[in-house]
């Protein structure tokens, strides 16, 4: 097959699968939460309530697309698109299998960090453009939370980079042939997981939207499909972080018996469910507690992890 055509097919497949999975997560999350909370969840539309997603999407498409008269119109419209764009672009560097990867680059991790930094703009601009006090508070929280958690997110991944000797995600997976990095890099894994949750703004790090305090935080003023983009963007982020955790620490597509694609899907799904379980289990810390926790504990820990890994790698003479 023509390599360009193949690339296009791969892109389309990944795009469709990722978008649909994120939409389906709405259903999965509601059903799982219901299961853990002794109730039913959506079970009326279609088999097991699966068509609930379709119903939700129809509803969201047909809602009035309202832009508040006091909002900064262009920024208000553009902001939700940013999060979709940045997260979707990041999927380009994720090696789902050796075959299913849109682009292989030796700076994949840097690309991911860059994109996730850009993603913050979506939240901050949305909050600012809404011209609403609740949004503003949410946006302020989002900016400081995500900026500070990004710092040690980057640091927490450096251990794996050192062990693999590359920023390329494919190289990192291949380096895990013998042992998954979760074992030598356990601390790095835990730190990355925490930073990842903060990055996706999921409970217990959902302070920017904290519904019992800030109504809906940065997206209080959003409705219709623009809200839908934040909504799906959040799930896309969950899929992305789960896929990254599998790739960085759990050997990506590697695994016995089953074909690679099944392994990566299983691993990703496991972490997605873990994200949902966290939401069912945890309360929300206060903003200042979150910040001091990040700077006083997580950052030093990730630095220590970096130093120790570096020392070990040096000592082994690589």
């Amino acid at each position: 097959m023509n390599p360009t055509l193949l690339k296009i097919v791969v892109i389309l497949v990944i795009l469709l699968v990722v978008l649909n999975v994120s939409a389906l997560l709405i259903w999965l999350e509601r059903r799982l939460l219901a299961l853990w909370q002794d109730r039913y969840g959506p079970n009326r539309v279609g088999p097991f309530g699966l068509l609930q997603v379709v119903a939700d999407m129809i509803k969201i498409f047909f809602k009035e697309d309202w832009i508040p008269p006091f909002a900064d119109k262009w920024v208000f419209v553009f902001a939700p698109a940013i999060i979709m764009i940045t997260v979707l672009l990041t999927f380009a560097v994720i090696p789902f299998t050796p075959l299913f990867q849109i682009t292989e680059t030796n700076i994949a991790l840097l690309f991911f960090l860059g994109m996730s930094s850009l993603g913050v703009y979506s939240i901050v601009l949305a909050a600012w453009a809404s011209n609403n006090k609740y949004s503003l508070l949410g946006g302020m929280r989002a900016a400081s939370q995500m900026l500070s958690y990004e710092v040690f997110m980057g640091l927490s991944m450096m251990g794996t980079v050192m062990l693999a000797g590359s920023f390329s995600l494919r190289r990192i997976v291949e380096a895990q042939q013998h042992i998954w990095f979760v074992i030598p890099q356990f601390l790095g894994f835990v730190l990355f997981l925490i930073a990842g949750i903060a990055e996706t703004r999921r409970l217990p790090f959902d302070l920017p939207e904290a519904e019992s305090e800030l109504v809906a935080g940065f997206h209080s003023e959003y409705s219709g499909m623009k809200f839908g983009m934040f909504f799906v963007g959040e799930y896309l982020g969950v899929v992305l972080i789960s896929a990254l955790i599998s790739v960085l620490f759990f050997g990506g597509w590697l695994g016995p018996v089953l074909p690679p694609v099944v392994w990566i899907v299983l691993k990703t799904l496991f972490f997605i469910c873990f994200f949902i379980l966290l939401r069912a289990a945890m309360p929300r810390p206060r903003f200042d507690q979150l910040m001091s926790w990040g700077w006083k504990w997580l950052l030093p820990l990730s630095l220590a992890n970096l130093a120790i890994t570096g020392a070990v790698v040096l000592a082994r003479g690589r």
Binding site: Q37, L203, A281
Partner: peptide, 16 residues
């Protein structure tokens, strides 16, 4: 109260 500090599940158990 648990829900007010961001914990989602207890309220369902307690209402049961």
């Amino acid at each position: 109260f648990a829900q007010d500090v961001g914990q989602m599940s207890p309220v369902f158990y307690m209402f049961n």
